[in-house]
Design a protein around this nucleic acid. Sequence first.
DNA 1: CTGAAAGCGCTTACAG
DNA 2: CTGAAAGCGCTTACAG
Lengths: 320, 320
Amino acid sequence: MEDRRAKLADVARVAGVSRAQASRAINGGYGVAPEVRQRVRDVAERLGFQPHGVARALATGRASAGERERVEILIVDPDPQAFSAKPFYGRVLTGATRALAGQDVALELKLVPAPPTTDEDPPFGRILINMPPVPGAAYARRGRTIALGESAPGVPFVAPDNHGGGHQAAVHLVTTGRRRVGAVFGPDTPCARERKNGFLRMMAGAGLTVVSAHGDFTRATAYTVAKELLTREPHLDAIFAACDVSAMGVLQALREAGRRVPDDVAVVGFDGSALAEAADLSSIFMPVEEEAASAIRHLLDPALPPPARLPTTLTIRGSS
Amino acid sequence: MEDRRAKLADVARVAGVSRAQASRAINGGYGVAPEVRQRVRDVAERLGFQPHGVARALATGRASAGERERVEILIVDPDPQAFSAKPFYGRVLTGATRALAGQDVALELKLVPAPPTTDEDPPFGRILINMPPVPGAAYARRGRTIALGESAPGVPFVAPDNHGGGHQAAVHLVTTGRRRVGAVFGPDTPCARERKNGFLRMMAGAGLTVVSAHGDFTRATAYTVAKELLTREPHLDAIFAACDVSAMGVLQALREAGRRVPDDVAVVGFDGSALAEAADLSSIFMPVEEEAASAIRHLLDPALPPPARLPTTLTIRGSS
DNA sequence: CTGAAAGCGCTTACAG
DNA sequence: CTGAAAGCGCTTACAG
């Protein structure tokens, strides 16, 4: 016995009215005798009637509920634990959620290990994260698109001023009297390079050389790298980490080496995530929430120019 | 001049065939004279014909592209920064994303300050987080629903064994020789109560009283509360925090009070988020990712019974 | 206040 | 290979 889903005709029949009347009763209810309206609604309830969104959409010409505007956040990240491990994504969601509040636009989330090859059912708007330039440009051709972080030329983007942030970190360390400075930079990505360049340029300007190595934005690697740095240069009095998660590894390496923070060694991270606050870590604050929010606003109204570069700010906490 | 979007009838008329023929030519193309097929397709191309997804969906009975299966994660949280501040949500997304990989089911995310009153366009399945019982039960009546954390009776749920976790934390502290134990419990929620009860029951069994106060799962409050605890009982040798974020506040209070961790005071948190790992914090690990994944699996196949309670595990790190 | 009818844009047996 | 017709489930002038 298939228990086929009740349709409007069923409700109408059981209630003893026409489909037109049933439709009116269930929707507006205007111009329907109160008792009829009640009866129809009771029957609908009893039969578990659920209006067929597609049919309704076709009849009304309005978009069906299921067709309602969607904004997709498409994240390319090979780490399936990315949402757990990287505070960045949570912050993006905060910003996106805020900008979408009260907009009746659905937020769709997609985490893929590599750029998808097919793209059926393109959403109204799309935010690209970590998308390589080529597929990025293709997405941009297909519909409203904005990248978080610089993407292909011509693809609108919003990103933090990484270079300026690196500069700020260096200025902070130098002006607080640090002279033997180490750094755990990030991997070979545009944003990590910018942070590094900003940091090194300032340091060079101050006539200081930096004992540095590259990490991969993870705590474990940063921990190992920091240990090496301390071996190479035991008298470091400051370490810059290219992200807060890395900074946590640096802090642990220092703890284990018996170096006090900030007395012996100052540590500055980059991101300004909740992690930095929780760990009392000085950090270059990236306005990720604001980036995401303005990305959404750009998608909703492309007349608004994408803000491109957003300034970073130094937040001084107990680690420096 | 409205440039109305071309419809199938237009294509058919221009190509000089029936709508049926046009439809076949554009879709399968089987049983259509090759030249007709080509002609129709050319015309469609020229007119920029885009099949009307809704109409097609209604006619075929299949879901339209825009109607493809969606699973919604509906989070009630008054904190608009929730995704930034609470690692829990990111972990949920990790688990959900993993369970959904390769399923062609869209993941929709909704963060609302209070339970929504209307519910048009119910998704295929829905995960409820922090939903009060009454609306929770209503959602469950409306479609496939599962709650993260116990909800109304009859609503399937999956949750960690909070009581057991509290017990594990207490056992750990007692068996490592701690005797003057403090605790920063959580707010007045079921899960915080369960953790607290599990912890206190074990402590009472060990004949120990606990110096405790309630926090609200935030770092700032935990910091303040921990300071009070230290004033009331300066010789505490252990503090249990009802969540990792709170534990960070406890750690800071201890740092400022000049108490060494773990030598003077052991600290154990609860959650097992990336934060705990980053901060080298011992913690009761909640399998959040696994909870979310099994919630999704239950939605996709309700024949699978919801797993209800998932065990927690103690992760010992440098803080205890 | 009510119902018969037309229509939303497309698909698909069915008969030719 | 082709077209007239019915139908997907609902809405909405229109006439009463």
